[in-house]
Each structure stands twice: as C-alpha cells, then as structure tokens.
Design a protein around this nucleic acid. Structure first.
Lengths: 343, 343
DNA sequence: CACTTATTTGTAAGCGTTTTCATAAATATA
DNA sequence: TATATTTATGAAAACGCTTACAAATAAGTG
C-alpha cells in the first residue's frame, strides 16, 4: 500500500501538504491540490487509520466502540444497524464487542476497545452502578449509554420508558380480563428487567390485583430461560392465563414451550412480549408486543456521541423514547370485559 | 493512560525491556521481569493496540476484519458468534462491516478495514467473481471466505453444500406428494442463491417433474421480498402446494404473507425453509428447515484464517460442511404417498 | 523603496510501540 | 590472566501520519 511519502514524492510536494489536502485544509493552492489529488488517485492511496489514530490521540480517531449486551437479540441488532448507519455516514468505523449479558466479558471488551484507541463508547451498562462504565466516564472517555441508564455519573442516555411500557402491556392484558398473569423476566440485575417488573407490579396493584410472587420468575435473559420459566408456569396447578415475557428471546422461548405442549394461543394462554420483531406478524398468531425502535435508539445515541466529541462540555442529554404496544392477536380480542375493575 | 515509557521509568528499565517482558521474550532476567510486571500492575498499563499495529505492520496486528452480508439474518449472527469466540480466544479483535447484501457497501467496508490495518479478512463474496475480494487476495492479504466461494483465485473457504441441501429439502416435499413447489429465492447473483436453485431443479427433474419458470422467483434476499414473492404465488390461479424459501428472512416473509391470508400450514400450503433458526420450534407449526451450523462455520473459518497467518504458504483448504434437513411440522406428516414416483 | 502582513509550502518532532544493533556484564576457554 | 563467548540490557530508528514552527514568496502600506 502506498503511503503519504509516496504520494508526496509523486506530486512533488512535502508530506505536510499532502496531509493538508487530505484533511481539507483550505490554505493549499488550487493547483497543488489538484496535483496531490491526481497522485492520490494514481497510487490508489488511502490514509492509514492506524497512523492517524496514533498520531492524533483520541481527537480524530474515527472509531467508535460498541459494547453490546446480546447480538442474538433482534432488538440489539436493530440498534447496531442504526449505529452503523449514523457512524459510517460521518466517516466513523464501529467495533463491536458482544458480551452476551456477561459482566466479565463486558469488562474485557471495554479494555480491548480502550486499547484499540476508540474515540468514544456506546455502552449498555450491565447494571445500574456498573463500575467499569463509571470509571470510563470518569477517566474522560466520551460515553453514551443505550437501553440502560447508570447512576452516580453524568452521561448521555438513549432509552425507552420501560416501566411505563410494561405497565401498558399488563394493562392491556387486564383489560382483556386476565387476572393471573405470569411474568417471564430476564436477569434480575439488569436495569431493564427491574423497570419492566416494576411496571408489571404497578399495573396489577392499580387494578386491585394482588402481586403473587410465584407468578414472577426472573432468571436469565436468554432463549433457554424463556423455555424453562414458561414450563414452570405451565406445570403449575393453576397456570396463569397470560404471560408477559421480558424480552425477545424470552418470548421466543415461551412460544416454544407453549407449542411443544400444543397449547393454543390465546385460547389456552395469552402472551404479550416486550420487544417487537419485524417478523412478529410472521408468527401464528401474530404476536402482541411492546415495540421499541432499536434502529432509532442506535441512531440517536450515535448522534449524541458524535456531537459530544465536538462539544465535550455540553450538559448531558437523556433521551427517553416512547415504546408502543402493538396489539395483534396473541392476547385474544374479546372486548375488555373487566375494564372497569381498575381502581 | 499510562504508556510504555511510564512503565519503564517506574520499573527503572528501558522501554525495550518492558516491551520484551510484555511479549514474553525469555532472555529477560527473572527479577527484572518481576519489577516490570509490578510496575505494569501498579500503573494498570495496557499496551496500545494502535501503536503495536502501526509498528508491526500487519504481522501482529491482532485484528480481523469481518465483511458480513446481513446482520439481520440469524444465520449470520450465529456465524459472528463463532468468529468472535475463536478470535477473542486467541487475543484477536474483530471489526464487523455489515453490507446488507449491497455490493457498493461491501467494497466500502473492505477499504475501511484495509485502512484499519486488519491482519486478515473473513469475507462472504458478493458474487462468484467478486473483483474486490479477488484483488484483496492478490495483493497479499490473508482471506478466508465463508458461506460463499469465489472463482479464479486460491482461497480458504468454509461453507455448506447448498446444492445438495436444497435437493434434499425438495426431495422431502416431493416424497410428501407435492408436485407444484414454488421457490422463493434470494438475490439472483449470490452464489448460494444459484446453488440452492440448482438443487431445486435437480430434485424436480430427477423425479420427473417439469421445472416451471413461473414457480421460481428470485428477487432480493430480504424479508420484504419474501412477503412479495409469496404473495405473487398465492395470487396465482393454481398456487403451489408447497414453498421452498431460500433463506431465513425469506422464510419469515413468506410466513407473514401466509398468515395474513389466514392460510393454514401445512394443510393449505406447506413450507420448507433454507436456514434453520434456534427458534424454529417456536413457530406454529414448528418449521421444517435446512439447518446449517453458522456458529461452527464461523469458528472453523477463524481457525483457518489464524492458522494461515502463522503458515502463509500452506495449500488452500475448502471445508464443505453438511447441512441437515430438520423435519418438523410445516410440510405435513402424511406418509410419503408419492415416494415411488421418483425416477 | 523599505517594511509589515498575508499566503503558501516545507522541516521536523512526536504519537506508543517493536526491534536491530551496540554495549556491558558475566561466564567460559586456553 | 587475557581472550572469546554468552547473556542481559539499553539507545535509537522506524511504522505513517499530523501539526507547530520556520521559511520563502507575494502583496499591501506609508
């Protein structure tokens, strides 16, 4: 690969000049600019990002580190797409560390990304007082949190109002007449798990339905967990008449457990999921689910991060997006028989 | 962040010595090693990958570039997971470029990854004579192809026998008595699309069933395309009795179109998909699909690439893995009524 | 015309590493 | 004891780029 020097030699100028035209420094005379551009074309030259990054320490490294909870979850995949788009549009590359909801791996990735000289981070903290992320912010890295907030440190965040969204989903179930609603929750210490559970409880309480602890399971956030928790519910003497699943993967797991028993949705059991999927309508029956716009979350987060790079001292922005309940057919369509029960 | 010099000063040695102990050079005395290790610990030092990469040009850059067709497709996600695991196990980082089945973006990413100084590439060529990838190989980069092969240049490949797998799927349908089988294919110029179509045709021909061109649609490889192609079939005067969908996304699209018309699978229409998903059993009815092990493909590809880095001149290896038809319930379970029809 | 000011380009240092070569100390050899 | 050999460490160059500073030329100014 050709380098700066080669280009400089060919164009008959110094490396400084070449660097200047590459970086759009205006005080280079037009005809020299042309000479240089020509040489660049002829040699098919591209500047080495590595050298650029080393030289201009952070400032112009053009690399974003993304620390992602679970690439298996379609919601996060959407987020990745939003981030990628926004980043590459501005000439930034993205390096992804997928930590599979595992704290140790998350920390490993943060270290790796630091060593890779990333310019800023987009992170979903593992929990509400994620030390590693806190430390990151404190040592001066540019950080934007997605999907989850973090306490004790000022940082930009883009997320959804999880509590409210869960509340809405449960409310929907209650309006449809359900009283025994099982909650298939994710890993207990993840902020979103807590918020969604809180929404679940509030909806129940507000409708005068007591919260039964054995109708709440928070295990792990993965597919298998969804299968197992659902089986636990289905094995009960009086199984719940409806399920609220805490994320995409849990929903899919629940579906599997339900179909394995050849139960009918929503007649035998209703289900509302947190996280929509673009193929929710491909399911049979189409899934009623809380939709959060992963793509947009990713895009906004990237924007915030890039923006902070040029303006490091602006006050923090918390973007709380709305999640929308997409009512399809997995909860039944009976008219809200018990709607008046609500307190 | 502390750097080499800081560590050296603290340990009272030269930077060269520090570098040596980091890289496990054995001819450093034990007690100096300890001193250095201590200083590293105390300063919480991690070498800058950027500087390492710049200095040791390619050789030890510890960075793999992944050029991925579609991160939305769960099959590729599995592949990513396999690659990540294998890579990080050996201390390599992975940088992902997701080109969404778009040639121009694929080329852009290859350029970016080159500029990022990656040590080697894992690529799914956009088509059988992908010039950009060919050029990559010719200019001396280490490349492993996944999912798709490339002609005209020697390169390691890990993929599945697409033709054979498709053949098996169609054979299954034929054995179940189907004669009018519609093929919802992907983008025509992708090698896997061609191979799968070839398998489809061969199965038909071998069973003495004429290939009808209007039962074959190759559009794009995405979800929406799956919906549209399926609708086209369903609108026919004599719609096919079974569908063979060319990938995950197309399957999901087909499912959506089918459910939208409230058709019953497999009674009204049967479906067999290429690409299995871990949640295929979560569908109703559980999907019969060709399973290819994405994780393993990714793992093997990474192994091959890493291996080639230490032994650049070994002959090329083509790993052709088997795909397995997972028979579930989307094609019906009637005994193979017409099994004897086959020639 | 001598002098300041603006414009364009070049020189060279430095970003954090690795590595060659030289040097010093320790050990072996005659 | 003088010399050769091995072993452990350091000094400095290089990787490809950006940028502060210097220099040279062109253009105003009184």
């Amino acid at each position: 690969m050709a380098n700066l020097k080669d280009v400089a030699k060919r164009a008959g100028v110094s490396t400084a000049t070449v660097s200047r035209v590459i970086n759009g420094d205006s005080r280079v005379q037009m005809d020299t600019q042309h000479k240089v551009q020509k040489a660049i074309k002829e040699l098919n030259y591209r500047p080495s990002r590595v050298a650029q990054r080393l030289r201009s320490k952070g400032k112009e490294s053009k690399l974003i580190g993304l620390v992602l909870p679970d690439i298996e979850n379609p919601f996060y995949v959407d987020m990745v797409k939003g981030i990628e788009l926004a980043a590459y549009n501005k000439g930034y590359s993205v390096i992804i560390g997928n930590f599979s909801q595992n704290k140790a791996r998350s920390e490993m990735y943060i270290d790796i990304l630091k060593a890779e000289g990333v310019n800023g981070f987009i992170v979903a903290p593992v929990n509400n007082d994620d030390q590693k992320v806190t430390e990151l912010v404190k040592s001066g890295y540019q950080v934007t949190c997605v999907d989850r907030d973090i306490a004790g440190v000022e940082v930009d965040v883009v997320k959804v109002n999880n509590e409210e969204a869960a509340y809405g989903a449960i409310k929907h179930l209650i309006d449809l007449g359900h009283r025994r609603i099982g909650h298939v929750g994710g890993q207990w210490d993840i902020p979103t798990t807590k918020a969604r559970l809180a929404g679940y409880k509030r909806a129940l309480l507000e409708s005068g339905i007591p919260v039964e602890e054995d109708l709440i399971i928070t295990r792990s956030s993965d597919f298998q967990s969804g299968v197992e928790s659902t089986n636990t519910f289905l094995d009960m003497e009086h199984p719940p008449t409806a399920l609220f699943t805490g994320n995409n993967l849990l929903t899919l797991g629940a579906l599997r457990a339900i179909h394995a028993r050849e139960l009918h949705i929503p007649k035998d059991i209703a289900i509302v999921g947190f996280d929509d999927m673009y193929w929710s309508e491909s399911l049979n029956p189409p899934l009623t689910a809380v939709h959060q716009d992963g793509f947009e979350i990713g895009r906004r987060a990237t924007e915030l991060l890039l923006n902070r790079m040029v303006e490091p001292d602006r006050p923090c922005i918390k973007v709380i997006m709305d999640a929308k309940l997409k009512i399809r057919k997995s909860c039944g369509t009976e008219s809200p028989s018990a709607a008046n029960d609500q307190s």
